[in-house]
Simulated assay, not measured.
Amino acid sequence: MEILEVGCGEEGNLFPFAQMGCRVCGIDISKNRISQAKSIYRQRNISAEFVCSDMFEYDFHSRKFDVIICHDVIEHIENKNRLIILLHHLLKINGIIFCAFPLWQMPFGGHQQICRSWMLSHSPFIHPLPTAVYRRMLILFGESKECVSELLAIKKTGLSVEKFRALIKSGSLDISQEIFWFINPHYQQKFGLMPIKLHTITKLYYLRNFLPPHTGAY
């Protein structure tokens, strides 16, 4: 089985698959993240392939994958249609794409937790402010040019449930399973929090975007 992770972290989500003997490949534009991933896998003597490249520029040489993991990546991509088309092209027949992302309207959907300022990093719902106001606030609180640029880029490319569903439909893909989390499983590993699913709220059109779920589609 061949597994591809787009925007892989140091270990990302590939490690369990690598342990099972799957052929795994991680691609990320960050040299540091790729370097760290290679180092960790070498230390553990586990075979894995890591590529430092822009996803849209890399030549996969007609490779196809059984599973493609796209975790906390799609909300950063401006041309989401292009990404979905590429992922579909890289997917084997009957393959699976796992896509998880924070909804734009949720309390920290703007990723403001990366701010250096304690106040901004702990302030929910500041990212939907008008762009000019949001930029000025970030600058006044001493955020670096790089941080301001990243947060404004995220504001521009944020994603909602409705936009995601339309995106999948336009890419000729089907959602076979969709899960909303109040506390998603990723936080169990990072913060020791037990995962909690959302059920009833998923039926409330638009309002569901303002609570803190991630949506996972297979």
Score class of each variant (00 low, 15 high):
105 Q>M: 09
103 L>Q: 07
218 Y>V: 15
91 L>Q: 05
95 G>C: 06
52 C>A: 15
80 K>E: 01
173 L>W: 03
95 G>A: 06
116 R>S: 11
156 K>N: 09
79 N>G: 01
125 F>C: 08
202 T>N: 05
65 F>Y: 03
101 F>M: 10
92 K>P: 04
109 G>C: 03
122 H>T: 11
206 Y>Q: 09
66 D>Y: 02
39 S>D: 12
155 K>C: 05
168 I>D: 05
125 F>K: 09
83 L>M: 09
1 M>E: 12
84 I>Q: 00
19 Q>A: 09
101 F>C: 06
8 C>F: 03
102 P>H: 02
88 H>W: 07
6 V>N: 00
92 K>A: 08
56 F>A: 05
43 Q>L: 14
197 K>N: 07
66 D>S: 11
125 F>H: 11
147 C>K: 11
1 M>N: 12
109 G>P: 04
103 L>H: 04
25 C>A: 08
211 L>N: 06
204 L>F: 09
217 A>V: 15
95 G>K: 01
1 M>F: 08
88 H>C: 11
128 P>G: 07
169 K>E: 13
68 I>D: 00
75 E>A: 05
14 L>R: 03
83 L>Y: 02
91 L>D: 08
29 I>P: 00
85 I>N: 10
40 I>T: 14
42 R>D: 14
32 N>D: 15
61 H>W: 04
211 L>V: 15
37 A>L: 06
200 T>A: 15
32 N>T: 15
12 G>V: 05
179 I>H: 04
129 L>T: 04
178 E>F: 02
37 A>I: 08
192 G>N: 14
11 E>D: 13
188 Q>N: 10
3 I>A: 00
103 L>V: 14
124 P>L: 08
18 A>R: 08
78 E>S: 05
14 L>I: 14
60 F>S: 04
180 F>Q: 00
129 L>Q: 04
89 H>Q: 14
156 K>Q: 13
74 I>E: 02
2 E>Q: 03
151 L>T: 03
124 P>G: 09
63 R>T: 10
9 G>V: 07
7 G>S: 02
112 Q>H: 03
137 M>A: 10
103 L>D: 03
192 G>V: 10
193 L>H: 13
137 M>T: 10
152 L>F: 06
189 Q>K: 15
43 Q>T: 13
45 N>Q: 10
82 R>F: 00
136 R>G: 11
37 A>M: 06
203 K>R: 12
116 R>K: 14
215 T>A: 12
43 Q>G: 12
71 H>I: 11
87 L>M: 06
29 I>L: 02
20 M>I: 04
137 M>E: 05
171 G>M: 08
113 Q>P: 01
39 S>V: 08
17 F>P: 01
47 S>W: 05
67 V>Q: 00
26 G>N: 04
104 W>H: 13
208 R>Q: 06
84 I>M: 08
177 Q>A: 15
22 C>P: 00
212 P>H: 13
175 I>G: 02
107 P>A: 11
102 P>R: 01
96 I>C: 13
124 P>V: 09
134 Y>A: 04
